[in-house]
Design a protein around this nucleic acid. Sequence first.
DNA 1: TATTTGTTTAGACTGTCTCTAAATAGATAT
DNA 2: ATATCTATTTAGAGACAGTCTAAACAAATA
Lengths: 138, 138
Amino acid sequence: MELYVRNTTELANLLRDYGITATLQRVEIAGILLSKKQHLSAEQVMGKVNQGRSIVSKATVYNTLRLFAKKGLVKEVIADPTKIFYEPKTESHHHFYNVDTGELTDFNADLKMTDIIPDAPKGMMVKGVDVTIRVGAA
Amino acid sequence: MELYVRNTTELANLLRDYGITATLQRVEIAGILLSKKQHLSAEQVMGKVNQGRSIVSKATVYNTLRLFAKKGLVKEVIADPTKIFYEPKTESHHHFYNVDTGELTDFNADLKMTDIIPDAPKGMMVKGVDVTIRVGAA
DNA sequence: TATTTGTTTAGACTGTCTCTAAATAGATAT
DNA sequence: ATATCTATTTAGAGACAGTCTAAACAAATA
Ligand SMILES: [Mn+2]
Ligand SMILES: [Mn+2]
Ligand SMILES: [Zn+2]
Ligand SMILES: [Zn+2]
């Protein structure tokens, strides 16, 4: 996944590459989320995409993010008990989740998954480590 | 944590060991959750503790589970995007999360965290692996 | 043009969880 | 024991993320 995609045509092509029909709304949402490495909740995407004006409805934001995730264009992160985060970085990696701020921070466990617990960001303490493997019918 | 605790006096003592004032409601909730290895949502605890009759209020169930977790008597599992699960098994371990059924299954990564992704339960496919380390102010 | 198919939409609704302010219970002081 | 203080429980309202529905709209096809 090439990040920092801005151009509309480029975005539309990218969507098609992932088997997603490019629509105005989808390009807008992709433009927001793929613009840089970040973790955004659906509500945050909603806010950014509709700066003032009203371009995309709530239902479409939720549906689109789910569609993007299903197609492998973005990644869903289940770490905050109150909301799902979406991010453009699809390579396998893991997160620090700050329970105080709700902030997510990436960390890579290149080798073989995680055979060590990486150091916590300075000033931070590891409050808990969760490994969750999601499985479904084969 | 000794599982299968049933006796009321035993439960009350256990709560005190964890710095929790033993009340009728707390003992009832502990009796449910500590009776065996399981992963229960707050709503499920609510249902089990108030079989027919009405013994413990919703607010108390939620507050008590959070208190138990804070005191280290039970473990919170953030894996399902819609609810938190609570379990009596406090030793470090990880979970399979079935996205179809929402079911949680334990697995131990004894060595050093997880340097391997364990095999999925038969008939199941690994849909995603998440390692989440929760951090807070040191 | 007519029809079909896919997408978007407003807004009602759901489920989990939180908050509040009052009632109750338990502990402490006199 | 009685009064006082503190901790706990409670009903029910409310917050909030997310879902659903049925209609509108758009795009593609016949
Ligand atoms: Mn929630
Ligand atoms: Mn949710
Ligand atoms: Zn990430
Ligand atoms: Zn478990």
